[in-house]
Design a protein around this nucleic acid. Structure first.
Lengths: 137, 137
DNA sequence: ATATTTACTTGCAAAAAGCAAGTTATTTTA
DNA sequence: TAAAATAACTTGCTTTTTGCAAGTAAATAT
């Protein structure tokens, strides 16, 4: 686990040091909501992350204990990326970010069902997401 | 309000474009939890943000409709920075970020009372924070 | 055996962050 | 009321990070 000089002892600052950039939470989103789990799949995100940046962010997320690398069951050429418990605990944050965005921008069709679930039963959505992710552990 | 080329139509990406960096949410935190409201007060944060970066982030937050500048009642030399409704709607995200951090790092004494409130009654804490901030609008 | 896939790495240019010092418009103080 | 201090930035410059395009090595498919 990475040890960096903390900017302050504020919990918000601590969190932002782990995932406060333009890419980390998108990777977490893909692992969480989009069931992507390999480098190649993550590289194909709509936001078109550069491969060197993806590699750097994956390393940083791993050093921060948010994701872990595993052997892929299908092939030795592949790597399986998974959220750790610490990573799964980001679900409530991702949910709130989605709900905030919903208030201030148009949500694409393909995402509306998920948003509807979050709105209808936030706690239930979070519990269910946990359950699904934990089945992979 | 700023219009930038969106990286994608994902709501998480939209949100990160507005506040997905190492500083924006710290400024929001100060406006929200620490009752700071002037440039000088914001500049004195524990994280020691450089003044040019602070100016840049304040402009960006303003362009994104998250904060607004007002005349300071005490002096024409001062500027009053305030969260907009859109900015106040970030409270649930800040709360979840605090709760996540609490699980994975030590919380400083001065912050424990706030965390205790968030844990005891998350909804109540958020409602109360809204109420306090709205009294300034 | 050769081509393809997968997960990266490398080199370089462009953008952003960070530091120190400077500027302008108020206010306060002597 | 002139000088000093405060407040909110800005400027110039260096360092770090991002981003693009291309390249590499191991494993797999053809």
């Amino acid at each position: 686990m990475k040890t960096q000089k903390k900017r302050s002892d504020c919990p918000v600052s601590f969190s932002l040091e782990a995932f406060g950039d333009k890419w980390s939470l998108l990777i977490v989103r893909d692992l969480m909501l989009k069931k992507k789990c390999t480098y190649g799949e993550l590289a194909k995100s709509d936001e078109k992350i550069a491969t060197n940046i993806l590699a750097a962010r994956l390393l940083s997320l791993e050093e921060n204990g948010i994701i872990k690398k595993l052997e892929h069951p299908d092939s030795k050429a592949k790597v399986l990326y998974q959220l750790t418990q610490k990573g799964m605990d980001l679900i409530p944050i991702i949910v709130e970010i989605n709900l905030w965005a919903e208030k201030y921008t148009d949500i694409p069709e393909k995402r509306k069902e998920l948003l509807a679930q979050m709105n209808a039963d936030k706690e239930g959505f979070i519990k269910n997401a946990f359950k699904e992710l934990e089945s992979n552990l």
